[in-house]
């Protein structure tokens, strides 16, 4: 459905997107996972044809997005910002965005009412968006992109800055869209989201896709290491021998290493020498976090 080949974009000396190629089949939920500044939003902007690439080609069902304006009718873009009119109600907002995609009159009103019901805001549809919570605005933001019932939905970090409850509600909506057979390109820097929802994940860093595949494929290909997760009290250390360490939470340290069980004794000894007061230890399989750490030497949240 969506094919991108050798896409590049630079801003001055900074290469934001560096030769990205990917292919998303119809009905696939594709996650583009990377830290802030990796090039995700720039890629989305090029796909949505508002930022022309320096080189490369983007096509939807074989039609170039810059050559065929009609492609826009098949794409629904959910931007990272809450791009709605605060002065309008949720219903009015959806009708307006639908009008821009030639969804007019009763069809538009019915579709808007249906989508607001679908996102759980039917009873608030006549309230102006300004009075909505962040999570409610996010849901309307998604609904606005679906007014013309697009086959391809491109979402740029649609869960940024909202509470876990609202996030879960959005996950449910996305699962439903996935089951409806929509093709979804989803960017995020939350590994949990990618692990939970995506059929295929592309890990992007410094403008390049450094790994791609399903979660299992990525684990097989890149996760030779396991995670030793250490819970502790007191001060953290900045270094632990030659091990790669990270601190996902304040009193939690992750040590990424192959053959974790064999090296456990060594790790505990180093912790003791470093003055770390260990309160608990677990050994986990590698997830996307450790795959990313393994590939880049940095954490996703860096």
């Amino acid at each position: 459905m969506l094919t991108i080949s050798n896409l590049t974009k630079s801003f001055g000396d900074h290469v934001a997107v560096d030769g990205i190629s990917l292919s998303i089949a119809k009905g696939m939920f594709y996650g583009l996972l990377g830290p802030n500044g990796a090039g995700k939003t720039t890629t989305i902007q090029m796909i949505s044809s508002i930022l022309p690439p320096d080189s490369g080609k983007i096509s939807v069902d074989g039609l170039g997005v810059y050559e065929h304006a009609s492609v826009k009718m098949h794409m629904g873009i959910v931007p990272q910002e809450i791009a709605l009119y605060d002065e309008l109600t949720a219903l009015e907002n959806l009708i307006f965005w639908g009008n821009l995609y030639a969804v007019h009159g009763k069809t538009g009103k019915d579709r808007a009412a249906f989508l607001l019901d679908w996102v759980g805001l039917a009873d608030r549809r006549h309230d102006i968006v300004k009075n909505y919570s962040g999570g409610m605005k996010r849901r309307v933001n998604i609904a606005a992109a679906l007014m013309h019932d697009p086959g391809l939905i491109v979402m740029d970090e649609p869960t940024v800055g909202i509470d876990p409850q609202s996030r879960n509600k959005i996950y449910e909506l996305l699962d439903e869209l996935h089951h409806q057979g929509k093709t979804i390109l989803y960017t995020t820097h939350y590994m949990e989201e990618a692990e939970r929802m995506c059929d295929k994940i592309g890990i992007i860093d410094k403008g390049k896709i450094i790994a791609e595949g399903s979660l299992d494929e990525l684990k097989k290909a890149h996760a030779q290491e396991e995670n030793i997760v250490i819970h502790f009290t007191g001060e953290a250390v900045s270094k632990l021998g030659n091990y790669v360490i990270s601190f996902p939470e304040p009193q939690m340290m992750t040590v990424v290493t192959p053959q974790a069980r064999k090296r456990l004794h060594d790790v505990v000894q180093l912790c003791t020498e470093g003055g770390i007061d260990i309160t608990g230890i677990d050994i986990h399989d590698a997830g996307l976090e450790s795959i990313f750490l393994n590939l880049t030497g940095r954490q996703l949240r860096d």
């Binding site: 949505s48 910002e81 791009a83 995609y101």
Partner: peptide, 13 residues
């Protein structure tokens, strides 16, 4: 400034 323009430009308008 609010990002609405970006979204408008993504539409067929």
């Amino acid at each position: 400034e609010s990002g609405v323009l970006r979204r408008l430009l993504q539409t067929p308008m």
